[in-house]
């Protein structure tokens, strides 16, 4: 957990410093004495303070608990990363390709990633999920889902 806490503490300090820097550019309020930057500044100082404590504890060898390092060779981490890329691609392509295509691809892709191999099951689950979720959002809740390149077909 030591390295993890050092990284966590440093991230906290970096975020706090950024907030203070941005806050310094905000206008001051002369009447109330506390302007838009007041609250963020107080929080940033608090965050930096507690991040420092976390770092000091870690350096003194008092970090609590066990932490697993993220190893890119680990199969689980690889799966999680691929699924992250898949959902980012989903977001990027949602408007262009349209909901039906990207959703079928996402469900099928994740199923294959997680070890499903039966084509029938993959096709069935991905088509059914896409259809049922579309039915719920578009028909029951009257929310329009992007149809992308299928726009003209509908």
């Amino acid at each position: 957990m030591k390295t993890a806490d050092l990284i966590g503490g440093s991230s906290g300090i970096a975020l706090g410093a950024y907030v203070l820097y941005e806050g310094s550019k905000m206008p001051a309020d002369l009447i109330m004495k506390i302007g838009p930057s007041y609250f963020p500044d107080v929080l940033a100082i608090g965050l930096i303070f507690f991040s420092l404590i976390l770092i000091i504890y870690a350096l003194l060898g008092r970090a609590k608990g066990q932490a697993e390092a993220i190893r890119f060779k680990d199969k689980g981490i690889q799966r999680a990363l691929i699924s992250l890329l898949a959902i980012v691609a989903y977001a990027v392509l949602l408007d262009q390709l349209g909901y039906p295509i990207v959703t079928v691809l996402l469900v099928a892709g994740i199923m294959i990633l997680l070890g499903k191999r039966s084509p029938l099951q993959i096709a069935g689950v991905s088509l059914a999920t896409t259809f049922v979720v579309w039915l719920l959002f578009a028909k029951l809740l009257m929310l329009s889902m992007p149809m992308g390149i299928l726009e003209d077909l509908v």
């Binding site: 980012v88 989903y90 949602l94 959703t103 996402l106 469900v107 994740i110 979720v133 929310l143």
Partner: peptide, 27 residues
């Protein structure tokens, strides 16, 4: 879980998109 996880992914992503119909919310 191989079946459950992709379904929840779709619900999560579409659910966040649906309110403002905005891809920014998905990111």
């Amino acid at each position: 879980k191989e079946i459950l996880i992709p379904i929840i992914f779709v619900l999560s992503l579409c659910g966040s998109y649906a309110m403002r119909q905005n891809v920014f919310d998905v990111y």
